[in-house]
């Protein structure tokens, strides 16, 4: 088992919860702010079924910081007013982590996301799966996402996705 500290675990958990909170608040700039200010900062959302068959295609494939910034534009500007909106609630639980070097830690978390369409008001499960994260640690004890893959156990989604998982 890799060495860990309560401070490291706190930094990781703070970031996991900040991301869940930003997504559930539909705060896309807040979501973006959880990512490292590096060109290779990336977010992928993909069915585990694809990964298991060496298929890289995903529901979302934001493999650079520019695409993360574009994702904010999609949601806040391009798609505004065209879709049935829905609330989400993310439940996230860290299950393992491994510090790679002084600035980098790899984290695996489970997630489940409930969805409540605003019109129907009936809650259902949107997706369950794992976050496979690489986090950047900063000198002030904080953490940011450098790489996140939301790998969905849910291979058939109950609808289209507006917000990242």
């Amino acid at each position: 088992m890799t060495a860990t500290t309560p401070e490291l675990e706190t930094a990781i958990d703070r970031l996991l919860l900040a991301d869940a909170n930003a997504l559930d608040s539909k705060d896309m700039p807040g979501w973006l702010a959880n990512y490292a200010e590096e060109d290779q900062a990336s977010y992928y959302c993909r069915a585990a079924e694809n990964t298991e068959h060496n298929l890289e295609l995903g529901f979302m494939f934001d493999d650079c910081r520019a695409r993360l910034e574009d994702r904010v534009t999609y949601v806040n500007e391009i798609w505004a007013g065209t879709f049935q909106d829905y609330r989400t609630r993310h439940f996230v639980q860290r299950v393992s982590h491994r510090q790679v070097d002084a600035r980098t830690v790899e984290v695996v978390s489970n997630f489940s996301v409930f969805m409540t369409p605003m019109d129907a008001g009936v809650t259902q499960v949107l997706a369950a799966g794992r976050y496979l994260d690489t986090m950047r640690l900063s000198d002030d004890g904080g953490a940011k996402l450098l790489f996140r893959r939301a790998e969905l156990d849910t291979s058939v989604l109950p609808r289209y996705l507006v917000y990242p998982i």
Binding site: C45, E56, L57, M60, F83
Partner: peptide
């Protein structure tokens, strides 16, 4: 193709996500 296919035309694609909502509506 991988980068374009994932983000452009599917159920969460830049120019097609709204189509999916229209099916429901």
């Amino acid at each position: 193709r991988l980068r374009q296919s994932s983000n452009l035309l599917g159920p969460c694609g830049l120019i097609s996500m709204e189509d999916a909502s229209i099916f429901h509506r």
